[in-house]
Protein backbone atom coordinates (compact mmCIF):
# COMPACT_ATOMS: atom_id res chain seq x y z
CA UNK A 1 0.00 0.00 0.00
CA UNK A 2 1.60 3.22 -1.10
CA UNK A 3 -1.21 5.65 -0.36
CA UNK A 4 -3.29 5.41 2.79
CA UNK A 5 -6.96 5.20 1.93
CA UNK A 6 -7.71 8.35 3.88
CA UNK A 7 -6.43 10.73 1.30
CA UNK A 8 -8.79 9.44 -1.35
CA UNK A 9 -11.72 9.33 1.06
CA UNK A 10 -11.22 12.93 2.00
CA UNK A 11 -11.55 13.98 -1.55
CA UNK A 12 -14.58 11.80 -2.14
CA UNK A 13 -16.34 13.41 0.79
CA UNK A 14 -15.60 16.94 -0.26
CA UNK A 15 -16.61 16.16 -3.80
CA UNK A 16 -20.15 15.14 -2.84
CA UNK A 17 -20.60 18.65 -1.51
CA UNK A 18 -19.24 20.05 -4.75
CA UNK A 19 -21.47 17.77 -6.84
CA UNK A 20 -24.50 18.82 -4.83
CA UNK A 21 -23.67 22.49 -5.01
CA UNK A 22 -24.06 22.38 -8.79
CA UNK A 23 -27.34 20.47 -8.80
CA UNK A 24 -30.76 22.10 -9.05
CA UNK A 25 -34.17 21.47 -7.50
CA UNK A 26 -35.26 17.91 -8.16
CA UNK A 27 -31.93 16.78 -9.56
CA UNK A 28 -30.61 17.30 -6.04
CA UNK A 29 -32.74 14.48 -4.77
CA UNK A 30 -31.24 11.83 -6.96
CA UNK A 31 -27.98 10.53 -5.60
CA UNK A 32 -25.24 11.40 -8.05
CA UNK A 33 -21.60 10.53 -7.70
CA UNK A 34 -20.48 12.95 -10.38
CA UNK A 35 -21.99 16.21 -11.62
CA UNK A 36 -24.22 15.60 -14.66
CA UNK A 37 -24.42 19.24 -15.62
CA UNK A 38 -23.02 22.41 -14.16
CA UNK A 39 -25.50 24.88 -12.87
CA UNK A 40 -24.47 28.02 -11.08
CA UNK A 41 -27.97 28.68 -9.73
CA UNK A 42 -27.12 27.73 -6.15
CA UNK A 43 -24.05 29.95 -6.19
CA UNK A 44 -26.09 32.79 -7.63
CA UNK A 45 -28.77 32.42 -4.97
CA UNK A 46 -26.17 32.36 -2.20
CA UNK A 47 -24.07 35.25 -3.48
CA UNK A 48 -27.13 37.12 -4.78
CA UNK A 49 -28.73 37.24 -1.35
CA UNK A 50 -26.98 40.19 0.27
CA UNK A 51 -26.69 38.66 3.70
CA UNK A 52 -24.21 35.94 2.82
CA UNK A 53 -21.82 38.42 1.21
CA UNK A 54 -22.27 40.54 4.35
CA UNK A 55 -21.34 37.50 6.45
CA UNK A 56 -18.16 36.92 4.46
CA UNK A 57 -17.27 40.58 5.00
CA UNK A 58 -18.00 40.28 8.73
CA UNK A 59 -15.87 37.16 9.04
CA UNK A 60 -12.92 38.70 7.19
CA UNK A 61 -13.08 41.88 9.29
CA UNK A 62 -13.42 40.01 12.61
CA UNK A 63 -10.75 37.40 11.93
CA UNK A 64 -8.22 39.92 10.56
CA UNK A 65 -8.65 42.40 13.40
CA UNK A 66 -8.44 39.67 16.03
CA UNK A 67 -5.28 38.21 14.54
CA UNK A 68 -3.53 41.58 14.16
CA UNK A 69 -4.37 42.48 17.76
CA UNK A 70 -3.25 39.08 19.09
CA UNK A 71 0.03 39.14 17.17
CA UNK A 72 0.75 42.69 18.31
CA UNK A 73 0.50 41.71 21.98
CA UNK A 74 2.06 38.30 21.47
CA UNK A 75 5.36 39.39 19.93
CA UNK A 76 6.56 41.32 22.98
CA UNK A 77 5.04 38.87 25.44
CA UNK A 78 6.65 35.86 23.81
CA UNK A 79 10.04 37.62 23.78
CA UNK A 80 9.78 37.99 27.54
CA UNK A 81 8.68 34.38 27.94
CA UNK A 82 11.29 32.90 25.63
CA UNK A 83 14.40 35.00 26.28
CA UNK A 84 14.22 36.48 29.75
CA UNK A 85 14.68 34.33 32.83
CA UNK A 86 12.39 35.32 35.66
CA UNK A 87 10.68 33.60 38.54
CA UNK A 88 7.38 31.97 37.78
CA UNK A 89 7.98 31.74 34.05
CA UNK A 90 7.02 28.07 33.86
CA UNK A 91 3.87 28.74 35.85
CA UNK A 92 2.93 31.63 33.57
CA UNK A 93 3.41 29.46 30.49
CA UNK A 94 1.18 26.79 31.99
CA UNK A 95 -1.48 29.38 32.76
CA UNK A 96 -1.42 30.65 29.19
CA UNK A 97 -1.75 27.10 27.91
CA UNK A 98 -4.60 26.50 30.32
CA UNK A 99 -6.47 29.53 29.00
CA UNK A 100 -6.10 28.34 25.42
CA UNK A 101 -7.55 24.98 26.42
CA UNK A 102 -10.43 26.62 28.26
CA UNK A 103 -13.94 25.37 27.58
CA UNK A 104 -15.41 28.46 25.97
CA UNK A 105 -18.81 27.74 27.48
CA UNK A 106 -17.31 28.36 30.93
CA UNK A 107 -16.88 32.07 30.19
CA UNK A 108 -20.00 32.48 28.07
CA UNK A 109 -22.22 33.89 30.84
CA UNK A 110 -19.58 36.35 32.02
CA UNK A 111 -18.66 37.41 28.48
CA UNK A 112 -22.33 37.87 27.64
CA UNK A 113 -22.64 40.28 30.53
CA UNK A 114 -19.46 42.09 29.46
CA UNK A 115 -20.67 42.36 25.86
CA UNK A 116 -24.00 43.77 27.02
CA UNK A 117 -22.27 46.12 29.45
CA UNK A 118 -20.00 47.52 26.74
CA UNK A 119 -22.95 47.88 24.39
CA UNK A 120 -21.31 45.82 21.65
CA UNK A 121 -23.93 43.06 21.46
CA UNK A 122 -24.75 42.20 17.83
CA UNK A 123 -21.69 44.08 16.50
CA UNK A 124 -18.42 42.63 15.15
CA UNK A 125 -16.60 44.01 18.20
CA UNK A 126 -18.28 41.44 20.44
CA UNK A 127 -16.58 38.69 18.46
CA UNK A 128 -13.27 40.54 18.15
CA UNK A 129 -13.12 40.91 21.92
CA UNK A 130 -14.17 37.38 22.75
CA UNK A 131 -11.87 35.73 20.17
CA UNK A 132 -8.89 37.14 22.05
CA UNK A 133 -9.49 34.36 24.57
CA UNK A 134 -8.24 31.68 22.19
CA UNK A 135 -6.13 33.57 19.61
CA UNK A 136 -3.91 35.37 22.13
CA UNK A 137 -2.76 32.37 24.21
CA UNK A 138 -2.27 30.37 21.03
CA UNK A 139 -0.11 33.01 19.32
CA UNK A 140 1.90 33.64 22.49
CA UNK A 141 2.50 29.93 22.92
CA UNK A 142 3.60 29.23 19.34
CA UNK A 143 5.74 32.38 19.04
CA UNK A 144 7.44 31.52 22.33
CA UNK A 145 8.54 28.15 20.99
CA UNK A 146 9.74 29.76 17.76
CA UNK A 147 11.64 32.46 19.65
CA UNK A 148 13.33 29.98 21.94
CA UNK A 149 14.98 28.43 18.89
CA UNK A 150 16.58 31.67 17.66
CA UNK A 151 20.34 31.62 18.25
CA UNK A 152 21.49 33.28 21.46
CA UNK A 153 24.57 34.82 19.77
CA UNK A 154 22.52 37.29 17.74
CA UNK A 155 20.94 38.64 20.87
CA UNK A 156 24.25 38.77 22.75
CA UNK A 157 25.83 40.73 19.93
CA UNK A 158 22.96 43.21 20.06
CA UNK A 159 23.27 43.55 23.83
CA UNK A 160 26.99 44.24 23.53
CA UNK A 161 26.09 47.01 21.06
CA UNK A 162 23.89 48.48 23.78
CA UNK A 163 20.51 47.56 22.28
CA UNK A 164 17.52 47.70 24.63
CA UNK A 165 15.05 44.78 24.67
CA UNK A 166 12.62 46.84 22.58
CA UNK A 167 15.31 47.41 19.91
CA UNK A 168 16.23 43.72 20.02
CA UNK A 169 12.63 42.73 19.31
CA UNK A 170 11.85 45.24 16.61
CA UNK A 171 15.21 45.45 14.83
CA UNK A 172 16.80 42.06 15.40
CA UNK A 173 14.14 39.43 16.03
CA UNK A 174 11.18 40.69 14.00
CA UNK A 175 12.92 40.31 10.63
CA UNK A 176 13.84 36.73 11.58
CA UNK A 177 10.35 36.00 12.83
CA UNK A 178 8.37 36.85 9.70
CA UNK A 179 7.80 33.24 8.64
CA UNK A 180 6.67 32.33 12.16
CA UNK A 181 4.36 35.34 12.29
CA UNK A 182 2.74 34.40 8.98
CA UNK A 183 2.18 30.81 10.12
CA UNK A 184 0.87 31.73 13.53
CA UNK A 185 -1.32 34.44 12.09
CA UNK A 186 -2.75 32.05 9.52
CA UNK A 187 -3.57 29.40 12.13
CA UNK A 188 -5.16 31.97 14.42
CA UNK A 189 -7.08 33.34 11.43
CA UNK A 190 -8.48 29.88 10.65
CA UNK A 191 -9.47 29.48 14.30
CA UNK A 192 -11.28 32.83 14.34
CA UNK A 193 -12.86 32.21 10.92
CA UNK A 194 -14.32 28.88 12.08
CA UNK A 195 -15.51 29.89 15.56
CA UNK A 196 -19.19 29.21 16.18
CA UNK A 197 -20.30 29.37 19.84
CA UNK A 198 -19.51 33.05 20.54
CA UNK A 199 -20.64 34.17 17.09
CA UNK A 200 -23.95 32.36 17.55
CA UNK A 201 -24.56 33.82 21.01
CA UNK A 202 -23.43 37.40 20.45
CA UNK A 203 -25.34 38.10 17.23
CA UNK A 204 -29.07 38.41 16.77
CA UNK A 205 -29.65 39.62 13.21
CA UNK A 206 -28.77 38.15 9.83
CA UNK A 207 -26.61 41.08 8.81
CA UNK A 208 -24.16 40.68 11.69
CA UNK A 209 -23.67 36.91 11.39
CA UNK A 210 -20.31 35.42 10.61
CA UNK A 211 -19.93 32.76 7.93
CA UNK A 212 -20.22 29.65 10.18
CA UNK A 213 -23.37 31.01 11.82
CA UNK A 214 -24.85 31.99 8.45
CA UNK A 215 -24.26 28.47 7.11
CA UNK A 216 -25.40 26.79 10.31
CA UNK A 217 -28.65 28.73 10.37
CA UNK A 218 -29.32 28.95 6.62
CA UNK A 219 -32.97 27.99 6.25
CA UNK A 220 -35.37 27.62 3.36
CA UNK A 221 -38.77 29.02 2.54
CA UNK A 222 -40.40 26.84 5.19
CA UNK A 223 -39.18 25.09 8.33
CA UNK A 224 -39.26 21.65 6.73
CA UNK A 225 -37.49 22.57 3.54
CA UNK A 226 -33.75 22.59 4.10
CA UNK A 227 -32.01 24.36 1.20
CA UNK A 228 -29.27 21.78 0.67
CA UNK A 229 -28.16 23.19 -2.69
CA UNK A 230 -27.39 26.71 -1.42
CA UNK A 231 -25.90 25.30 1.81
CA UNK A 232 -23.44 23.21 -0.16
CA UNK A 233 -22.66 26.14 -2.48
CA UNK A 234 -21.99 28.37 0.54
CA UNK A 235 -19.84 25.63 2.07
CA UNK A 236 -17.75 25.35 -1.08
CA UNK A 237 -17.34 29.14 -1.30
CA UNK A 238 -15.91 29.47 2.21
CA UNK A 239 -13.90 26.24 2.18
CA UNK A 240 -12.03 26.45 -1.12
CA UNK A 241 -9.96 29.55 -0.18
CA UNK A 242 -9.05 27.91 3.13
CA UNK A 243 -7.97 24.70 1.42
CA UNK A 244 -5.85 26.64 -1.06
CA UNK A 245 -4.19 28.58 1.77
CA UNK A 246 -3.56 25.37 3.70
CA UNK A 247 -2.02 23.65 0.69
CA UNK A 248 0.25 26.63 -0.02
CA UNK A 249 1.42 26.90 3.59
CA UNK A 250 1.19 23.20 4.49
CA UNK A 251 4.78 22.78 5.63
CA UNK A 252 4.64 25.83 7.83
CA UNK A 253 1.24 24.87 9.20
CA UNK A 254 2.49 21.48 10.26
CA UNK A 255 5.42 23.15 11.99
CA UNK A 256 3.13 25.63 13.73
CA UNK A 257 0.57 23.03 14.79
CA UNK A 258 3.15 20.76 16.31
CA UNK A 259 5.28 23.51 17.87
CA UNK A 260 5.35 23.50 21.61
CA UNK A 261 3.17 20.60 22.52
CA UNK A 262 5.21 17.74 21.20
CA UNK A 263 8.65 18.61 22.38
CA UNK A 264 8.16 17.61 25.99
Amino acid sequence: MTFPGRARNDRAETSYAIVTSFATGTELFKVNYWPKAFNWGNYESVLGGRNFVRSIGNSIFIATTTVVFALFLAVTASYALARVRFRGRGLLLMMILAVSMFPQIAVLAGLFELVRFLGIFNTPYAMIMSYVIFTLPFTVWVLTTFMRDLPVEIEEAAIVDGATPWIIITQVFLPLLWPALVTTGLLAFIGAWNEFLFALTFTSSETTRTVPVAIGLLSGASQQEIPWGPIMAASVIVTVPLIILVLIFQRKIVAGLTAGGVKG
Binding site: A7, T14, T239
Partner: peptide, 25 residues
Protein backbone atom coordinates in the same frame (compact mmCIF):
# COMPACT_ATOMS: atom_id res chain seq x y z
CA UNK B 1 4.28 15.23 0.58
CA UNK B 2 1.05 15.08 -1.40
CA UNK B 3 -0.60 12.76 1.10
CA UNK B 4 0.58 14.84 4.01
CA UNK B 5 -0.99 17.89 2.39
CA UNK B 6 -4.19 16.01 1.63
CA UNK B 7 -4.74 14.89 5.22
CA UNK B 8 -4.73 18.54 6.27
CA UNK B 9 -7.91 19.15 4.30
CA UNK B 10 -10.48 17.76 6.79
CA UNK B 11 -8.73 19.75 9.49
CA UNK B 12 -8.96 22.99 7.50
CA UNK B 13 -12.65 22.66 6.62
CA UNK B 14 -14.72 24.72 9.09
CA UNK B 15 -16.51 22.44 11.56
CA UNK B 16 -19.88 23.89 10.62
CA UNK B 17 -19.22 23.12 6.97
CA UNK B 18 -18.20 19.53 7.70
CA UNK B 19 -21.25 19.13 9.91
CA UNK B 20 -23.53 20.35 7.11
CA UNK B 21 -21.68 18.31 4.50
CA UNK B 22 -22.01 15.13 6.53
CA UNK B 23 -25.60 15.92 7.47
CA UNK B 24 -26.33 15.95 3.75
CA UNK B 25 -24.35 12.79 3.06
Amino acid sequence: GLVRAAILIPWAIPTIVSAKMWAWM
